[in-house]
Design a protein around this nucleic acid. Structure first.
Length: 259
DNA sequence: ATGACTCCCAGTGGGAGA
């Protein structure tokens, strides 16, 4: 079973990249479930047919200009939730479904802008609500896969310049404390589990030739229930799509489970 | 360097992202 997450920064622009990436997976390693963030499309504009034509089941939840999330799956989706259950939110940030016996959550965490801003306060409230909801979900029988653009670095290994970026957005103690609260719900970071000391990033700024100079952050994550830990075979950040013309600023991240 | 790039909605500029 292969799960993946990708912040596409506009599915309108990136649809060809997504289809090409799915088609380009090794034959015995097709993606079973892909969650997308920042589709930036209302549901009436979602390119559903492009995925249906390739045999995917899809569920999506979007809005104009900002946010927007989707699940693209080779297998039936059930028990679909949109946004955090129990949290009023006017932004389309979360979509969740059961697939192949796993509770998959695709999430676009708030950016937060800067620690002083109202948006940061919203990020903290949103993280509190997510943690409460995931705690409830973790009591159910199915293992969890919480995937998406977390907009949080776990530690300095996730940051190209931890000194220059100390205490800035994505790198504050408050954000990292919330990340730890999520991991404390019997979850683990799949990439870090397999690559304990690798400095690899999933996002690079469009400016300053940041990708070429590898000035990036690791903010896109796959958290799995610890009950799945012995099944994890591989987890990688695929930089290839970031090298293409008109790329997303994020790279897809995938995990392969023996399941 | 209060920037840089890209997307969107707008409408010949401005907000947001990270």
């Amino acid at each position: 079973m292969k799960l993946a997450t990708w912040n596409v920064n506009s599915l309108n622009v990136r649809l060809p990249h997504v289809l090409e990436w799915l088609d380009g997976q090794p034959q015995d390693e097709a993606v079973d479930v892909l969650v997308l963030q920042e589709t930036k499309l209302t549901d009436d504009k979602f390119p559903a047919q492009a995925f249906i034509d390739k045999g995917y089941e899809i569920s999506f939840f979007g809005q104009k200009t900002y946010n927007g999330v989707a699940i693209i799956s080779k297998h039936p989706l059930s028990d679909i939730h949109k946004n955090i259950v129990g949290f009023e939110d006017d932004m389309a940030r979360v979509i969740s479904a059961k697939v192949l016996g796993v509770r998959v959550i695709g999430a676009y965490f708030p950016n937060g802008q800067s620690p002083e801003s109202d948006k940061f306060a919203y990020k903290m409230r949103w993280l509190d609500a997510l943690t409460l909801w995931v705690r409830e979900l973790s009591k159910q029988a199915e293992p969890l896969a919480l995937m998406g653009d977390f907009n949080i670095t776990w530690d300095d290994l996730d940051v190209w310049d931890p000194v220059e970026l100390a205490d800035t957005i994505h790198c504050t103690e408050q954000e990292r404390a919330h990340f730890k609260n999520l991991l404390d719900l019997e979850l683990f970071d799949a990439f870090r589990h397999l690559h304990p000391s690798e400095k690899k990033f999933s996002w690079w700024d469009y400016r300053e030739a940041a990708f070429r100079r590898n000035k990036g952050l690791r903010i896109d994550h796959i958290l799995l229930s610890k009950s799945l830990q012995h099944q994890v075979q591989a987890c990688e950040i695929d930089k290839e799509p970031r090298k293409k013309e008109r790329p997303s600023d994020h790279a897809p991240v995938w995990v392969k489970l023996q399941r």
